[in-house]
């Protein structure tokens, strides 16, 4: 157990740093994906037209390829992509893309359409009367969205959102293959030099199980708050 100690003799500090990278990566990617997903859901609400078509193509690509591939693409090619995006504006920059930024961008790119799809179908399930009731009360359009439609849709989409969170959390484990020193990478180094793979990978497994369990618990408590004022259905 001394191997897990903090400091020069143990790998406790390395593992903790790695866990921090994993958590940061998951949290940032998820928050960005939630914001962009909400935007995408609202923009592609009507199932026809150009916006919807673009949304479908994007969703199909993002959900049809492994996120690690996107991570590699942004990590190796990110500099060129940023350059190509900025060039039309006369900016000749070739910024180096840190691995963390590439990973966050890639996971955001992949998970945005998942969350958008959940929220879109939830929005479509908010009773039409809600919109009409707010309209006849002449509530401003922005307020209808922010105070009436989105909160109700979020309640419907909530379980799916929690679901995606857990999937994304586990997907972050792949970033070690792209050179990020996350928890997996730390465990790999530690088990390689101590020849104690069971100990270190065991710690990783326990971390992932406990961390997702803890966040699900938190989410469920939050969901009960969201369910205030809603009569439980028969199931």
């Amino acid at each position: 157990m001394g191997l897990l100690a903090y400091g020069a003799d143990g790998y406790g500090d390395e593992l903790l740093d790695g866990a921090l990278v994993t958590v940061q990566l998951a949290v940032f990617s998820y928050l960005l994906a939630a914001i962009l997903g909400t935007l995408m859901a609202v923009l592609t609400l009507k199932p026809h037209g150009l916006r919807w078509m673009i949304g479908r193509v994007y969703a199909s690509v993002a959900t049809g390829i492994p996120s690690l591939l996107v991570i590699f693409l942004l990590y190796y090619g990110g500099t060129e992509i940023v350059h190509a995006l900025l060039a039309p504006f006369g900016v000749e920059e070739r910024p180096a893309i840190p691995p963390m930024a590439a990973a966050v961008a890639a996971l955001t790119f992949v998970y945005t359409p998942y969350l958008a799809d959940l929220l879109r179908s939830a929005l479509q399930n908010v009773p039409k009367g809600q919109l009409e009731a707010a309209e006849v009360l002449s509530v401003p359009r922005r307020q209808i969205w922010l105070k009436v439609l989105l909160p109700q849709a979020l309640r419907i989409a909530y379980p799916g959102f929690v679901n995606i969170w857990v999937v994304l959390l586990k997907d972050t484990a792949l970033v070690s293959l792209a050179g990020l020193t996350d928890l997996i990478a730390a465990a790999k180094v530690a088990s390689g030099s101590t020849r104690e793979p069971f100990l270190f990978y065991g710690v990783v497994v326990v971390f992932f199980i406990l961390f997702s369990a803890a966040t699900i618990r938190l989410a469920n408590r939050q969901s009960r708050r969201l369910d205030r004022g809603v009569r439980a259905s028969e199931a």
Binding site: T63, Y114, S121, P159, G160, N163, V166, I216
Partner: peptide, 30 residues
């Protein structure tokens, strides 16, 4: 309701959905 197909039929741009949640809220799934 949990097992009904949401949108039957063949469409190329339908996205695959997501794994079930581990741990407790087994009844809740997308």
């Amino acid at each position: 309701a949990t097992v009904r197909r949401s949108r039957p039929g063949l469409s190329l741009f339908r996205q695959p959905l997501v794994r079930r949640l581990p741990a407790k809220p087994a009844a809740r799934e997308t």
